[in-house]
Design a protein around this nucleic acid. Structure first.
Lengths: 242, 242
DNA sequence: CGGCAGTTTGATGTTACTCAATTTAAGTGG
DNA sequence: CCACTTAAATTGAGTAACATCAAACTGCCG
């Protein structure tokens, strides 16, 4: 990837934060890299993108590839909070706050775009939909944080993993036109384990049970959901009112 | 508590959301209940205050007593996300969103104040510090959500409980002038269990270990931290950079 | 072919859950 | 003031879920 290449992925999603910020979808007007307020960077798989203690006056968006947000304890235990897909803000909070209190790492090769926050603020003043989008992202993230806490706090291993798969496939499906039950799925068992609070060994066992029960097939970075209703029955988080 | 009584607790904290909204601390000018944009309500211990599916055009603040925010699964499992202390917004998101996606319940007898959101928005337009305060509350809550996920996802029972105690005592200490190691602590073991993802039986065992090791004393709604450094050693969440 | 990273499988250990009984404390009515 | 009730906390015994340790297997790459 060279400077000057158009940013293919993010502006395509016109209604996303990035698309609104840039004003036009890619098809109509290719956006040039590294303007005076927008910078693009590429990272290889597993590269650290942002550290939890970094303070930077940029708003980060993932353009291409997968990444994840996580926290790590001094003894090396890691909790993955959220996986990022193309078009995602690193976190919605990042629009308002210069301190990102968590770390970010590339899962696959990624392209990242970052915008200077003062400039973002100027555009928000001109176009309030950008602010509304950021607020919606805040709400979505806070809702997801609650679901994660429920998943980790009260649920068994198979439910946790099923929930993760449901959550991710639904987010992938949201951004693709075709609706299949086969997904590009670059997570290693280690990522799943760190996202649901289990060991890789146990993740492997649960997945092989799912496989035997013909609920999913997961190999070579490809996830196939064979029995969507059953996966939903195990994993869906439906809050009760009582 | 009758209508017309002044709201004692919340305006005392001038720099909190509620204090800023009302403009003056209690000492200078008692605030009257149930104006045309502010309503006060009392609830008994264990009363449900808001249900997860409610939509209401109010911004809620806890004036007096303890409450908590939680989610419940259809099979009755419950996860407590956060305990609310006097002066707390129910959630920061609530300032912008009319849909509260979680439920709220009184822990002790409480007084709750709610403000009509359109009026809150008007005041925000006049006084931007209110908005800044709400944004800070958003950041604090999202940070706490991450810590909760770490606590539930990667930590052992004693660490989880120690963290909860540290977190709560620090928040209680923040809002009191004197700094002791004895705290009013109205949680039942059931609340602790639902907050840290354990059973009451196991909570009881861990606490009795803490008691034997002279780290804490917890009886009759009173928590005494006998060995703060040891409690912090067990429970503190210190994120690493690697 | 050897080496490596990731996954799978088996055997064993530990943590926390379940079930059940007992204790404690706080009412409540006579 | 004392039986009786009730909710909460504690304790013990047995069990299930998940972790740990270690070995074998797979696919990939040089």
């Amino acid at each position: 990837m060279k400077d000057g290449d158009p940013c293919v992925t993010c502006p395509v999603r016109e209604k996303g934060f990035c698309g609104l910020l840039l004003g036009k979808p890619f098809q109509q007007s290719p956006v040039i890299h590294n303007s005076n307020w927008q910078e693009h960077q590429g990272f290889g798989a597993d590269a650290r993108i942002v550290n939890s203690k970094d303070v930077s006056d940029f708003v980060y968006v993932l353009c291409d590839g997968w990444a994840f947000r996580f926290g790590r304890m001094p003894d090396n235990r890691r909790q993955i909070f959220r996986f990022l897909l193309p078009g995602d803000l690193f976190t919605a909070i990042n629009v308002f706050e210069e301190k990102l209190h968590s770390s970010f790492q590339a899962l696959t090769n990624v392209r990242v775009s970052r915008f200077k926050r003062p400039e973002v603020m100027k555009r928000i003043a001109i176009k309030p939909e950008i602010l509304a989008t950021a607020r919606i992202a805040c709400v979505v993230e806070s809702k997801h944080a609650d679901e994660l806490s429920i998943n980790l706090g009260v649920r068994a291993a198979d439910e946790r993993i099923a929930y993760l798969l449901l959550h991710l496939t639904s987010r992938i499906a949201d951004r693709s036109v075709i609706r299949e039950h086969r997904y590009h799925f670059p997570l290693r068992h280690q990522h799943i384990a760190d996202a649901v609070g289990l060991t890789t060994v146990h993740v492997s066992r649960v997945i092989s049970i799912f496989r035997k029960r013909k609920i999913i097939e997961l190999r070579d970075g490809l996830l196939e959901v064979l029995d969507p209703p059953e996966l939903a029955r195990i994993g869906a988080i439906e809050l009760s009112n009582h």
